[in-house]
Design a protein around this nucleic acid. Sequence first.
DNA 1: ATTTAGATCCTCT
DNA 2: GAGGATCTAAATG
Length: 203
Amino acid sequence: MARLKPTFYRRDTERVARELLGMRLVRVLPGGEKLVGLITETEAYLGVRDRACHTFGGRRTPRTETMYLPGGHAYVYFIYGMHECFNVVTEKRGVPEAVLVRAVEPVEGVEEMRQRRGGRADLASGPGKLCQAMGITRALNGHPLAHAPLWIEEPRAQNLDLLRGRKFVSGPRVGVDYAGEAAAWELRFMLKAPVNRFSPSPR
DNA sequence: ATTTAGATCCTCT
DNA sequence: GAGGATCTAAATG
């Protein structure tokens, strides 16, 4: 299946956030096992003009440095003392914008993901959960998403119609009440129906 | 079903 | 020293 090329990411951030819905997030563990999740929820973070974004106003610190890389790199940060969040850097070098991947629907390596989630049923329905389930940590911060051990690819032909349909809903982003005007911006995108109609999701 | 509080630590001021 | 792009279990209605 075709891995997304850098040009996919080096475009308008909001558009990338929408078009990532339905794509396959692939993680190959150090042991070689392959974990795959279909992206079902994203949020766009619009850089220097977006109060909710880590790089608002051009803030540039050791943490946000990777957001200044060209689109197509992973931006993984640590939050609330215990969770990692996985983002995809967008736009060209020096334009620090990104898309937060908030949820995936597990489709391969599901048992491994369940174990990583401590046996719980809810595997990847939140940004911290999906990182735990797929073994995504800050060690992958700055990783180019074009190759192993972490990349994003187009789904199988069977799901292309769903991609074309792009049935999604949008709304305000989660947890950004502090961001003034930007808190109301509708930059959160979620697939309406299960993406993977050929492998039913938990009811 | 919805709300609340606690866990826990990195990052920036 | 404060607070956060979260999650969970426990309490409450």
